[in-house]
Lab assay of single mutants.
Amino acid sequence: EETVVIALYDYQTNDPQELALRRNEEYCLLDSSEIHWWRVQDRNGHEGYVPSSYLVEKS
């Protein structure tokens, strides 16, 4: 079962390993094994790492 997370803030990045976030957008959580950086996928299928503190699990 996939976990959906919501971005609390915008996040901009130039790092190809990371993914930009848009506030209030939903993302699919792929990997939360790292404490500070979670791997997520956006609705267009793009994947990357984002700061975990910018996300909240959708209830």
Rank of each mutant, 00 (worst) to 15 (best):
E1A: 07
E1G: 06
E2K: 15
E2S: 08
E2D: 12
E2C: 05
E2I: 13
E2R: 06
T3E: 12
T3S: 11
T3V: 09
T3I: 12
V4T: 12
V4N: 08
V5N: 02
V5M: 10
V5G: 02
V5C: 11
I6A: 06
I6H: 05
I6E: 06
A7K: 00
A7M: 01
A7D: 00
A7L: 01
A7T: 00
A7N: 00
L8S: 09
L8E: 05
L8M: 13
L8H: 06
L8F: 05
Y9E: 13
Y9W: 08
Y9D: 13
D10R: 01
D10M: 01
D10V: 00
D10N: 07
Y11E: 00
Y11T: 04
Y11L: 05
Y11I: 03
Y11H: 10
Y11D: 01
Y11P: 00
Q12N: 08
Q12A: 14
Q12H: 12
T13Y: 02
T13Q: 09
T13V: 11
T13N: 05
N14T: 15
N14A: 10
N14C: 13
N14E: 15
D15P: 13
D15W: 06
D15H: 09
P16K: 10
P16H: 12
P16F: 04
Q17V: 08
Q17L: 10
Q17I: 05
Q17P: 03
Q17A: 10
E18F: 09
E18T: 07
E18D: 08
E18K: 15
E18C: 08
L19C: 13
L19F: 09
L19M: 15
A20W: 15
A20C: 13
A20E: 13
A20D: 12
A20R: 11
A20Q: 14
A20L: 08
L21T: 04
L21W: 02
L21M: 06
L21A: 02
L21R: 00
L21E: 00
R22P: 00
R22F: 14
R22D: 11
R23N: 05
R23K: 15
R23I: 13
R23P: 05
N24E: 08
N24C: 15
N24Q: 11
N24T: 10
E25H: 12
E25M: 08
E25I: 03
E25D: 15
E25T: 10
E26Y: 03
E26R: 06
E26I: 04
E26G: 03
E26W: 03
Y27I: 00
Y27K: 00
C28N: 11
C28H: 15
C28W: 13
L29M: 05
L29F: 03
L29N: 00
L30S: 03
L30Y: 02
L30F: 03
L30T: 10
L30C: 05
D31T: 04
D31V: 03
D31R: 03
D31A: 06
S32K: 12
S33L: 05
S33V: 05
S33D: 08
S33Q: 13
S33K: 05
S33C: 11
S33E: 08
E34W: 07
E34I: 07
E34C: 08
I35T: 14
H36K: 15
H36P: 05
W37R: 15
W38R: 04
W38L: 04
W38C: 08
W38D: 01
W38Q: 03
R39K: 11
R39T: 07
V40N: 00
V40L: 08
V40D: 01
Q41E: 09
Q41S: 11
Q41D: 06
Q41A: 13
D42K: 03
D42T: 05
D42M: 00
R43I: 06
R43C: 07
R43K: 12
R43W: 08
N44M: 12
N44R: 11
N44P: 03
N44V: 06
N44A: 14
G45Q: 07
G45Y: 04
H46T: 11
H46V: 10
H46N: 14
E47H: 10
E47P: 03
E47V: 10
E47G: 07
E47S: 11
E47A: 07
E47D: 05
G48C: 02
G48V: 02
G48T: 02
G48A: 04
G48M: 02
G48E: 00
G48L: 03
Y49D: 07
Y49I: 12
Y49C: 14
Y49H: 09
Y49A: 12
Y49S: 14
Y49G: 04
V50F: 03
V50L: 01
V50S: 07
V50C: 12
P51F: 03
P51C: 02
P51Q: 03
P51K: 04
S52K: 15
S52E: 05
S52W: 03
S52H: 04
S53I: 13
S53G: 11
S53F: 04
S53R: 14
Y54Q: 03
L55K: 00
L55H: 01
L55Y: 00
L55T: 02
V56F: 09
V56D: 05
V56I: 12
E57Q: 09
E57A: 13
K58W: 03
K58S: 10
S59H: 05
S59V: 06
